[in-house]
């Protein structure tokens, strides 16, 4: 812990460093004592300013005060020990609680900066008669305060990103882009970026839909796909092959000239794949295929049992 404190003082101004590093531990101790002594008053002030700045509007005043108290204590502890793990863990838990309630990144950054202001102002009031000492106190306070602000804000952003990723995942799993346009005909419009994970999910969904809807023809429309690498292209070929194993013919539509060129250049075997320029043409082709198949089937189904006996 002592090492950590020294580590922090390194970030103070280099020219004054030798004199400072000896006393900076002492200054930080003095600072922490001040923040402890004025705990009640300062966190009340902070909570007031949060409300006045209309931050955390999704939370009640009691909630803001409770969280402010916890953040304040963690803040002082981080200043004292120079370790940020507890603060990090707390800000992650805090983020988990407040993100679902719609708290935004700028609010979190805002409240941390407000705390910094509140504390700096109280230091200013305490040491205003001794400018030289005030400067030295601020020199040891600022880097630590910045790092604390950083820790809390980054923790929030990371948690938010994690939740967004989780939600995207859930949307992918849930959304069924497989559309049945008419009996035995499915359309799978693919839009956006396809990564291997999404490609796998789309294929699994499509294959299940083929079975559930007893589809004979599937039109996969890739008009909305901007780019395709060899991995995704090979996956498309696999999807066509797997669909055939379930008895469905796949027609791929909307391959852009750029993608077509890429596919030829990287040498994906497209010989087994039926392609039609656009979705409309693809559906027409699908209707033709369905008509071809339906006609003899219905005829024979009635004749066959007799002719076999």
């Amino acid at each position: 812990m002592v090492d950590n404190r020294k580590g922090m003082s390194v970030s103070t101004r280099a020219s004054e460093a030798p004199a400072l590093s000896e006393s900076s531990a002492g200054l930080l101790r003095e600072l922490v004592a001040h923040l402890r002594q004025n705990r009640t008053q300062l966190r009340e002030e902070w909570a007031r300013r949060i409300t006045r700045a209309e931050l955390l509007t999704a939370m009640t005043e009691e909630e803001i005060f409770a969280e402010a108290t916890a953040v304040y204590d963690n803040y002082v502890e981080a200043l004292e020990t120079g370790t940020f793990e507890a603060l990090q863990a707390y800000s992650r838990r805090l983020s988990e609680r407040i993100i679902p309630r719609g708290v935004e990144t700028d609010e979190v950054v805002g409240i941390v900066l407000l705390l910094r202001d509140v504390l700096a102002r109280s230091l200013f009031n305490k040491y205003q008669d001794n400018v030289e000492k005030l400067n030295r106190i601020l020199d040891s306070y600022e880097p630590a305060a910045n790092r604390i602000a950083n820790t809390v804000a980054v923790g929030f952003v990371e948690e938010r990103e994690r939740i967004i990723r989780q939600q995207q995942e859930a949307i992918r799993e849930l959304s069924t882009p497989v559309l049945q346009v008419r009996e035995r005909l499915l359309i799978l419009p693919i839009i956006g970026v396809i990564d291997p994970q999404r490609a796998r999910q789309l294929t699994e969904q499509l294959l299940r839909a083929i079975r559930a809807n007893r589809a004979k023809v599937v039109v996969i429309d890739v008009t909305g796909v901007a780019a395709m690498d060899s991995g995704v292209a090979n996956h498309l070929v696999q999807t066509v092959e797997a669909s055939r194993l379930l008895g469905a013919t796949v027609i791929v539509t909307g391959l852009s000239p750029e993608i077509a060129q890429t596919l030829v250049t990287i040498g994906v075997d497209l010989s087994e794949m039926a392609t039609v320029g656009d979705l409309q043409g693809g559906i027409e082709e699908a209707e033709r295929l369905l008509a071809d198949r339906a006609a003899p089937t219905t005829q024979v189904r009635e004749i066959a049992p007799e002719s076999t006996r």
Binding site: L207, R208, Q238, R244, L245
Partner: peptide, 19 residues
């Protein structure tokens, strides 16, 4: 051949087995 399950079909083509 009738009744290949969706999961089975997908694993087959990943194995390179396309019948």
């Amino acid at each position: 051949i009738v009744g290949i399950q969706p999961d089975v079909a997908f694993a087959m083509v990943q194995l390179g087995l396309t019948l």
